[in-house]
Design a protein around this nucleic acid. Sequence first.
DNA 1: TAATTTACATACAGACTGTATGTACGTATT
DNA 2: AATACGTACATACAGTCTGTATGTAAATTA
Lengths: 197, 197
Amino acid sequence: MPRTQQERSDSTRSALVEAARTLFGTRGYHDVPAEEITRTAGVTRGALYHHFGDKQGLFRAVVEEVERELTAEVADVLAAPADPVAGLATALAVFLDACLREEVQRISLTDAPSVLGWEAWRELESEHGLGLLVQALTDARDSGVLVDMPVRTLAQLVLSTVMEAARMIAGAADPDQVRAETQQVLATWLTGLIRTG
Amino acid sequence: MPRTQQERSDSTRSALVEAARTLFGTRGYHDVPAEEITRTAGVTRGALYHHFGDKQGLFRAVVEEVERELTAEVADVLAAPADPVAGLATALAVFLDACLREEVQRISLTDAPSVLGWEAWRELESEHGLGLLVQALTDARDSGVLVDMPVRTLAQLVLSTVMEAARMIAGAADPDQVRAETQQVLATWLTGLIRTG
DNA sequence: TAATTTACATACAGACTGTATGTACGTATT
DNA sequence: AATACGTACATACAGTCTGTATGTAAATTA
């Protein structure tokens, strides 16, 4: 039963990405040898280097997949009709929940910046999570609820702060406590950005 | 001229830390083989493993040194008599300047979390930069200028935000522009934390 | 001064990455 | 339909790096 090359490639690539995602997500980039990934995926390292060039290339593909999913989750919330401020708050909560997953922590929050470099990582983020936040903040500003501010810069700072909050919560001895505290801090910040008048 | 073992150890250790600091600071942890460090320091890898256990141990020592210096720079500013709010703003500016150095970027902001792990890194920070910020914020709160808030959590979020601002400025095509924008955002946040009345 | 510990250097083993080469199968050409 | 060609791998290999085990000279202690 002859498979087309396209099919072979696709199934191999996705098998590699899936295996890599699980392993990177639980043990981190540097603790997972390429051969373990390929063995899990049922191929040899030849396939990896053929499709992704090197180990970092595969990692990049994994990051992109995770980012796409994360963005989709948050976009769903933002798509639902709500006033800009409430929508933003809900979206941030959803994003924060997602960031609590070990997988996201390791891949997106810890390894990605150092493995890909900050520049490359930020560029990636721009097309996904950050892009979404910029859009949401722009909408909020345009509808007059946000104080006048450089939106893109604000978005990056907000995003990094939320990510740090997620890391704190995940690593805390008492996650609920820390979650409540970080939300208090973030809420205060958010209200400072709302135009009151 | 017989040197005491203490002297030998000290000079070897500091030579290693100095060499490692320069190399890690310019090229990053994973791109610097241990042997290049020891060669630069004028010893062999035996000395490194004797004194620091492994490569990560040496990196940790470098991080601690950088952190100590950073903390000292900021502490100097905070020591000067000033009202809490102004002092805090100045201290943050000084810290931000320090974070612009390539060395600090690579070692403290990029590599440290992923090489040492977030837990270990945060623990280190607690004794240095973060500790200082917590102290400053506590003072501000006690003197009544800060709104009531979980200071430690606030400090961590503020610190991470400032670090992100530093990374953005350092990587920007137009650093002055980004610096102005981040300061505007941070200033707005800060005023939201000041008790008005 | 003999015994012991410290501070290394040297030699070695193992792991991992990336590359070069070989091969089977799908795909285009005539 | 037969042949030529490119793609998708597997296998074999070379180089680099880390950590460890062992050896040795100098300092410290008994």
